[in-house]
Design a protein around this nucleic acid. Structure first.
Lengths: 202, 202, 202, 202
DNA sequence: AATGAATGAGGCTTCATTCAT
DNA sequence: TATGAATGAAGCCTCATTCAT
C-alpha cells in the first residue's frame, strides 16, 4: 500500500464519507462503510482521525465551505436585487449540480441540529452571515436598513432550503429547472414589493 | 399489568416513538428507548409490531395525518389567495405549536427519503395533493390552470419547509412569529404578481 | 439453552469472572473470556450486566463478603488476644483454602486502588471496620482505648496482607503452613508487649 | 531531534514507564502513553525495544535494583536486631519517599506473578536473598541458624508488604509515620521473643 | 538510525430480533 | 397473551506491532 501523508489520507476519508452519507444517510455512515468506500482498513481511519466525530467535523467543514463558495460566488458590482438572485440561484444550482454534496449537506445540518444544537446554529449563522455580507456589499451605494438585509437573507434561506428539500426528495432534474425559475420569481416579486415599501433605503 | 387492547398498545408505541424521535433523532430512536418511553417491555413492542420499520410506518402515518389536518383545516368558502395563505399559516403554526411533532416530521421525511425513496415521494405527494385539492376547491368558481395550482403548491411547500427548518434549528419563538409574517408577505407578493399575469385564470 | 433467571445468570458470570481474574489477572479478564468461561455468548453477559464495571462491582462484592465472612467467623466469647488471633488465622486460611478467591481479592484491591481510589479505601475501611468491631466486642468486659484497637487492626492487616502476597507468589502450601505459625507468633509477641504496656486497659 | 545514544533512549523509556505505571497502572501503561511520556515517537520505542515485554523487563530491573538499594543500605557493623530494623525501616521509607516507584513496584510484582510466575519468584527470591545476606553478615559474630534468618526475613517481608499496601491505598503520610513505628515495634517484640527462645544462636 | 504510516486483532457495548414459557 | 431471557451482527475504538522510507 502506497504510503501517503496523513493529510491526504484524511481527504480520502472525507470524500468517502460524503459519498456514504449521501447514499445511506448519517446513520448508515458507519466507520466500516466509510473505510470500505475509501478502500482502507478500518484501523487506518482511526489512525487519521481520533474519533468518528472528528471525521464528521471535517466533513462538515468540507461541505459548508463548498456551500459558502456557492453563495459567495457572485458579481461584486451587482446591486442588491441582482445579488440576492445570484445567491439564491447559486445555492439552488449547488444542490442540483452536486446531488451527493447537497444531500450530505442536508444530512449534516440535520445531524448537527440533533447532536450539537449550538454547533448547528453556528453553522447556519455562518452561512447566513455570508449571505448578509454579500447583500450589504451590494447595497453599499444605497445603504439599506439592517433589518431589511436580515429579511432578505431569511427569504433566500427559505426558498433555497425549500427547493433543496424538494429536489433531493424527487430528484427530478427537469422539474427542478422549472422550480428554480419559480423560486426566482418568488424572490423577485417579494423584493420588488419589499424594497418599494421602503424607498428611502434605495 | 392492565389489559389494554392491541390497538391502544400500538398507539402508545407510536406516541412514545414521536417523543423519542423528537428528542434523540431517528438514529437515537432505538426499540429499547421507545419501549421504555411507552413504559412497556421491549418484547411487547415486537409483539405489537413485526419490526421496527413497521412501527415507524405507523409513526409516519400518524405524523403525516396530523400534518394534513393542519393543511386541510381551512375555510372552504375562501378564495384561492386566502386559502393559500391559510394553508401556509396552518403548516407554520403546526410547526411552532407542536415542536416535537414538527421535529419528528422533519426527521421522518429525511429518513423516508433515505431509506425508501419512493415511500417518501408518496408521502410528499399525498401532502401536496391535499394542498392541491384545497386550492382547487377554493378556485372552483374561477377555474385556474392546473399548472398554476401546482406552482402555488410548490411555493407553499418551499416557504413552509424553509420556515420549518429555520424554526427547528433556532427554536426562537419570537423570531418565528416575525418570520411567519415575512413568509406570508412573500406568498402574497408572488401570488399577486402570478395571478395578475394570468387574469383569465381568475 | 435452558432459560434461567437473570439473577442466577449473574451468579454464573461472577463465578466465571473470579476464575478468569485469578488465572489471567484483571487486565486479562476481558468480557469475552469471562463469557467463554461462563459458557455463554458475549451478548448474554451484557444482557445481565449493563457494563463490565457493573460486573466487576458484583465480583468485588462477592469476594469481599466472603472475605468478611472469614474475618467475622470467630467465637464471640473469646477475649481480645484470642479474637485477634482467630481473625488473623481466619484470613490466612481464607487465602490458602481458596487460592483463586484470594488471588482475585488481591487483584481487585489493586484494581480498585487504581481505578477508584475512594472506592478502594471504602472497601479497605469496611474490612478493617469488621475487624475493629470484632475486637471491640471481644474487649467489651475490659474496655480498651480506641487507639489500641486501631493498632491491633493495622497489625493484623499487615500480617495478613504480607502472608497473602507471599503465599500467592510462591504457592507453596507447606511453607504457608509454617508461615501461618510465624505470623501468629508475631502477633502474639506484639500483643503481649502492647497490652502489658497499657494494663489499665485490661 | 537531538542525537541521543540508544542507552539513554532506553533509560528515558524506563523512567517514562515508571511514571505511567504509577499513574495509570499496568493495564493503563500502553506503549503509546509511555512513548508520549518519554516525548518520543511511538515507533522509537519499538526501535529501542523489540517488544513491550522487553521494556517492562527493564523497568522491572530498574525498580528492583532501587528496591535492593533501599534494603542493602544499612550499617555493616550493626547486630542482627538492629540490621533487621534498619532493613524494615529502609523499605518502608522507600515506599513513602518515592510513592511512584513504590506504586510501580507493587504493580510490577503483581504483573510478574500473573504473567510469569517463575519470574516473579525469582525477583522475590532475589530481594529476600539480599535481606538474608544482610542479616547473615550482621550475625557473623554470633552465627544464627539459617532457619532463624529465613524466619526473620519472612517477617520483615510481611511487615514491609503490609505497610506498603496500606500506605499506597490510603496515601496518608502522617498515618504512615505512625504505622512505621508500630511495624517497627512489632518486629522488635517478635525478635526479642524469637531470639531469646534460641539463645544458643546468639 | 529513526520515524510517520499502516494494520489485524481484539477491546466494550448496543442493536433489532427471536425464543421459551 | 405477554414478556423475561437470550443472541448474532455490528457499532466505535485502542492495542502492540510492522512496514516503508
Amino acid at each position: 500500500m502506497a504510503r501517503i501523508s496523513a493529510a491526504e489520507r484524511r481527504n480520502d476519508f472525507v470524500r468517502a464519507a460524503v459519498e456514504v452519507i449521501a447514499n445511506r444517510g448519517i446513520d448508515g455512515a458507519t466507520t466500516r462503510r466509510i473505510a470500505e468506500q475509501a478502500q482502507a482498513p478500518l484501523a487506518t481511519l482511526h489512525y487519521c482521525y481520533d474519533s468518528k466525530e472528528d471525521l464528521l467535523a471535517d466533513v462538515f467543514e468540507f461541505v459548508t465551505s463548498r456551500f459558502r463558495e456557492a453563495i459567495a460566488d457572485s458579481d461584486p458590482h451587482a446591486d442588491l436585487a441582482v445579488t440576492a438572485h445570484a445567491i439564491l440561484r447559486g445555492v439552488m444550482e449547488f444542490y442540483v449540480e452536486s446531488a451527493s454534496l447537497g444531500t450530505t449537506a442536508l444530512e449534516l445540518i440535520n445531524w448537527a441540529r440533533r447532536q450539537h444544537g449550538e454547533h448547528a446554529i453556528t453553522v447556519y449563522d455562518k452561512a447566513m452571515e455570508t449571505v448578509r455580507t454579500a447583500l450589504r456589499n451590494a447595497a453599499a451605494d444605497h445603504p439599506v436598513e439592517p433589518e431589511t438585509i436580515d429579511q432578505i437573507t431569511y427569504v433566500i434561506a427559505c426558498l433555497a432550503d425549500g427547493f433543496g428539500l424538494n429536489w433531493l426528495t424527487y430528484g427530478d432534474r427537469s422539474a427542478a429547472a422549472e422550480q428554480m425559475q419559480i423560486s426566482a420569481s418568488v424572490l423577485e416579486s417579494w423584493l420588488a414589493a419589499r424594497l418599494e415599501s421602503s424607498p428611502a433605503a434605495l
